[in-house]
């Protein structure tokens, strides 16, 4: 076939039609684009597993909310709300528990109190819990603080009176020796 035919000529000189390759800048640009491509791949993967991603996100949000709730509850503790009341509480608690221990050493018959009255003598009865909750919700309320102190003092007075009566009926020393003998 003659070389003068257009198609034949092009095919036979095909390589001579080729130019040099692209300048280096083309690859440099591509290389730069390939770096954010990694990020894109992560987004694509997230898209493919969107349900799992959403579930993980919900769990994470829940965890954060539960943590914050616990932190809030901790912050609401009496120690954080009113340090001076916590101090008063510790003092009166020690005093009241000491008296209650002494009272418990006397026989029930001598004490002459039914179970309801005994419950009232306990340190953290319903009245006390109401006052403490009120103080946590209203940390700066002086009336509540005063009421709590008054509560402690009344309880102490009451316990002292009971103890006084008990001692009159049966001195503590004798009771203690009986108790020790039982052990």
């Amino acid at each position: 076939m003659s070389e003068s035919n257009f198609e034949d000529f092009v095919r036979q000189h095909r390589q001579n039609f080729e130019e040099a390759g692209p300048p280096p800048g083309v690859w440099a640009e591509l290389e730069q684009q390939l770096a954010p491509g990694k990020k894109r791949k992560v987004i694509q993967l997230m898209g493919r597993h969107w349900l799992k991603a959403a579930a993980v996100l919900v769990l994470m949000v829940n965890s954060v909310m539960i943590y914050q709730f616990i932190q809030m509850k901790k912050a609401q503790h009496l120690t954080n709300v009113s340090p001076e009341m916590q101090e008063a509480k510790m003092y009166y608690t020690a005093q009241i528990e000491q008296r209650l221990e002494t009272i418990k050493r006397y026989p029930d018959a001598l004490l002459g109190l039914d179970s309801m009255a005994r419950k009232e003598l306990e340190l953290r009865n319903e009245t006390y819990q109401v006052l403490e909750t009120e103080l946590i919700q209203n940390p700066g309320n002086e009336r509540i603080k005063a009421a709590m102190v008054r509560y402690y003092q009344l309880k102490l007075d009451l316990l002292d009176k009971i103890l006084e009566e008990l001692r009159e009926k049966q001195p503590v020393s004798q009771k203690q020796s009986d108790y020790e003998r039982e052990i």
Binding site: A20, P22, L30
Partner: peptide
């Protein structure tokens, strides 16, 4: 697998002809 070195090799192999 996203191997950038492999991308470079592929580019080197084909970019000349494709640029033309």
């Amino acid at each position: 697998k996203g191997d950038v070195h492999a991308f470079r090799e592929l580019y080197n192999a084909y970019s000349g002809a494709m640029y033309n």
